[in-house]
Design a protein around this nucleic acid. Structure first.
Lengths: 333, 333
DNA sequence: AACGTTTGCGCAATCGATAGAGCAACCTGT
DNA sequence: ACAGGTTGCTCTATCGATTGCGCAAACGTT
């Protein structure tokens, strides 16, 4: 209770319990029955450990052991529901499997991503899940050099298994929904605008594919200037729309909740013209359904993706495997 | 590059570099100049380490060292901006100070909180920041028994320093804003309703105090049935409002963004009567400003709080210290 | 040439927990 | 009473990195 400087070790407890350190170790890690220690000794040791506020030194324990049970995850940001949910569920799933989850946030900075991966490996993580990494292959290379399994989530790599949303299908469905609602609510049919993201990103590219395919299937041509993927930030979304003042019906496909902020900001500046605009967003936020003009959002299946990812742990798959997890479309109004 | 099973250790590198393990260790942890190793040896070792994809074994390193530089944090959830920002900034600040941040999410479960604290201590965390812990004192007790510093964030405890928002002042200001807007927009003055949270919680209690004080200063009496703190969830907020169908002006103080969801849901069911309702929310969300009827939100000063918390690290303060950090009021429209 | 100093590096103990191997004491059956 | 088995525990090497100490070679000085 009253140790002030050093922490209690099994040696301290051994002295107090009049037993050997190895006995204490066996009691405290639960192998004492296997090692045929008496229930009496075990009880005594456990009582003393409790009294002394003992906590095992994982450093020492892991050094000796073979398995660490640590699973690492890197996420870019905690600033939206999607990554927040990923982190939270990751921890839950890991614990449920008796593993120790360590999540670290890398601010979308490629170097920080790499450093974080190295740190997690230094901590003997047995598996590393890279979420939304800007350069997943660099991380997988390092992991495989260190003999650590790695898995990509949300963004695909080429070297290790990747679990990602079916962005194309989700975008296709969302585009169809917006087109439908434009027709239904506004009696109008025409090419939507695609706002937000970067075309170089895999996810944006896949979503644009779905967007274009839906238009094609409806026999609508998409003019080049309707693809406005100049970045993810709210500001850049607001900027690309700034001089678009529709004098008739219009529809917008928004590529992320961050961009959605910018779109809604723009939308509010339209005054009465706003009623002639319909939009939908790829990504989900609980406040989305309250935004006027928003006809639907695509929610990525976080549990589904993580479940898949966890199923890979300990079962190395063929390098390039790509698992697509379907999204869920929320329709509003 | 091609180790398949075991990880490279300083012994492997020592063999390859024709040097001793201690030399390799010194080179790789940067103390080689202090130990007067030649630049040539250092370069050779570093090259080989690079080639082999070496990553230090933190377990072994920390076991031998005195300081771990690990700072732990427990947060209840990642499901809103507030905790997400806390986690993110915590990591940033820790890294900026050369520490290794480990954040873990405890689902508002008191037992999980305690287990997580024990785990972090097992990992030799030098300091533990408990955010929004349901039972902070239990954690501080365990930490002090283990000789680990602990600090409370967001919710105060009695045993260790606590850094919390000035909930009372923030709520006072927000209440004043809503009252003002009711008068200004609706020409109405009267008692607002307080929706969401639990009165037993410190934060809710402090906010209710501010809420009541503002009414008192305006000479408005608050009837008991206007305090509707039946929980944080969106559903419970919607439920307590379900049979409130205002036939005149009304104002609502919402106690969290989670409750806000319920309030907005209710608000939309009002149809044309909705125009007669004004509300404001303690807590911030970027979509808040787009919600019709929302006159303002209180943003807690995450950087300020974390800055304070970090300033305590390594400088044990008088046990009960409570630091109040002012909030920022966002006004909409 | 003899001696002190600097340079460059290795030896070996150590951190705390774990696990294989081993050793007394006790029990059981004959 | 003694072989063979069981019970209950301890001894000791080990995991990988760190660090105080020490030692030999090279260098400088007079």
């Amino acid at each position: 209770m009253n140790k002030n400087k050093k922490k209690t070790t099994i040696y301290d407890i051994a002295a107090l319990a009049d037993a050997s350190p190895s006995a204490v170790s066996a009691v405290l890690n639960g192998t004492w029955e296997k090692r045929r220690l008496s229930r009496k000794l075990a009880a005594r040791v456990m009582r003393i450990a409790e009294e002394q506020g003992y906590a095992v030194n994982v450093q020492a324990s892991l050094l000796r052991r073979e398995k660490s049970n640590i699973v690492g995850m890197i996420v870019p940001k905690y600033d939206n529901r999607y990554f927040g949910e990923i982190a939270e569920q990751f921890e839950e799933l890991a614990r449920a499997r008796g593993m120790f989850p360590v999540v670290t946030c890398t601010q979308r900075d490629p170097d920080l991503e790499f450093e974080a991966a190295r740190e997690l490996i230094s901590y003997q993580a047995e598996c590393l899940i890279s979420t939304g990494a800007t350069d997943p292959d660099r991380i997988s290379d390092f992991c495989s050099a260190a003999g650590v399994q790695s898995i990509n989530l949300d963004l695909p790599g080429t070297k290790v298994p990747s679990v990602i949303s079916d962005n194309r299908a989700g975008a296709y469905d969302l585009t169809m929904l917006i087109l439908d609602r434009c027709l239904q609510d506004l009696g109008w049919s025409g090419s939507l605008r695609f706002v937000g993201g970067r075309l170089a990103d895999h996810n944006t590219a896949a979503r644009l594919e779905g967007f274009l395919a839906a238009h094609r299937d409806r026999g609508i041509e998409v003019p080049d200037h309707h693809v406005l993927a100049a970045g993810y930030s709210a500001d850049s979304a607001a900027r690309v729309l700034a001089d678009f003042r529709p004098d008739g019906p219009a529809g917008i496909f928004v590529n992320s909740t961050i961009s959605l902020e910018g779109v809604v900001r723009w939308h509010r500046t339209l005054g009465t013209r706003a009623a002639q605009v319909r939009y939908g967003c790829f990504d989900w936020d609980p406040f989305g359904s309250f935004l006027p003009g928003n006809v639907g959002m695509v929610e990525q299946d976080v549990s589904g993706m993580l479940g898949k990812a966890f199923s890979f742990i300990g079962h190395p798959e063929t390098p390039g495997t790509q698992v697509l997890v379907p999204c869920r479309l929320h329709r509003f109004d």
